[in-house]
Design a protein around this nucleic acid. Sequence first.
DNA 1: AGTAGTATGTACGCTACCGCACAAAAATGC
DNA 2: GCATTTTTGTGCGGTAGCGTACATACTACT
Lengths: 242, 242
Amino acid sequence: MLSSPPHQPNQNRLLAALPVAEFERLKPHLELVHLPLGDVLCESGGRLSYVYFPISTIISLHYILENGASSEIAGVGNEGMLGVSLFMGGESTPSWATVQTAGHGYRLKAALLMQEFNQGGSVQRLLLRYTQALITQISQTAVCNRHHTIEQQLSRWLLLTLDRLNSEELIMTQELIASMLGVRREGITEAAGKLQQAGIIRYRRGHITVLDRSGLEKHVCECYEVVRKEFERLIRDVGNVR
Amino acid sequence: MLSSPPHQPNQNRLLAALPVAEFERLKPHLELVHLPLGDVLCESGGRLSYVYFPISTIISLHYILENGASSEIAGVGNEGMLGVSLFMGGESTPSWATVQTAGHGYRLKAALLMQEFNQGGSVQRLLLRYTQALITQISQTAVCNRHHTIEQQLSRWLLLTLDRLNSEELIMTQELIASMLGVRREGITEAAGKLQQAGIIRYRRGHITVLDRSGLEKHVCECYEVVRKEFERLIRDVGNVR
DNA sequence: AGTAGTATGTACGCTACCGCACAAAAATGC
DNA sequence: GCATTTTTGTGCGGTAGCGTACATACTACT
């Protein structure tokens, strides 16, 4: 691996949406970190000492059931942050947070975020709007789990993941995708096989390349678009908030 | 129907959890309303002019898909409120809100709630904690949809509904329950039949009576308990918030 | 180059749930 | 009381996805 690409806090869309004054105030406290695949940032019921603003990493929020089964409820990429339960007042959640795609992000001491949040104003407004977008994502996951096929769900998941990366290629085994969607690995093999035969994706041992994004958009269920639009609506420049 | 039972704002646990000063300030503005079954309080993308604090009514938050299929993502009873999107800053959500159980509740002009919320302090803290509990409920619904049987989900749904009512009897057709859970009506007939044979419930045309609550608790998946505990933890007296 | 380990492909029987069709029973209205 | 409507019961073929088992192929290590 050659030298890392340059990272800047404003590559996180949430941070970038902050007014200049607040952004500059937070900036000196933002610490660039690399998050390796599979890293557990928060266990069920655990407390975060930092909040994370992904740049090139994706963090998965998921549940693990008593029988060992698991499901992702939402993902967090450069459009968002990990740690909303802090300012929501619960301090912990029953979900887990693990690194789904290795990469960089900025972290910020929880206490500092709370300090900003409690001043009200733009930071608070923005974080709450982001949280609402997260609620939409979780809700849509619930509905999609109920009514759509694995192939549709895989398409949704791929598009959402793609939107969070600048690349067309994801480092991701079928096993891992399966555990995100809460289905069998074989189910992903089959669905991915269909997408590959349609010329939409190509994959090889842990690497999935999307060849035809618009083809994927034709395969996906409505859930993708609902989530995407809601993020667009809710986390544009906070100055636009009436 | 004889005279209605007396209703008091503090029968809503969220209102009851407010400090006295804030409660008294809101009280004169709370308006008792009766909500009939099926009433649509908010369509997808619509805005609320009031927020609602259920007493004996239950409001269902649900999605309707393009193909007409639907699923509940969460319910709102006397433990909560309808309208979190207002203070979350989004003003609308892609979900619908309809009355699942007819009954009474208090409503409050959206502007007045916003005024209280924006003062920060206890009201804000409590509402955000409630919103986090709502997120847990939605998340657990997503996971439950994926991994548990109709019988388990029905049990979960019955218990959550019972907790919101003072009665052991729900006015509810199997058709309606099916559309909440996003499954076929026949699936509910079958699952309910099993519960009836086990002596746990009894039903007749739109009335379901729970005979053996602890039996139901043995049938249910873990999802019920996770949601219940999280509500307990998050919306006890707001004075307990550290 | 050979080997161990990991990732993917495939097959087969099984189950939960679906979609549909229709019968039976209970409530409602006239 | 009788007809209509609504709700619930039941049956049947179809299917998506599961659990299991095992084969194949790619990668990495020595």
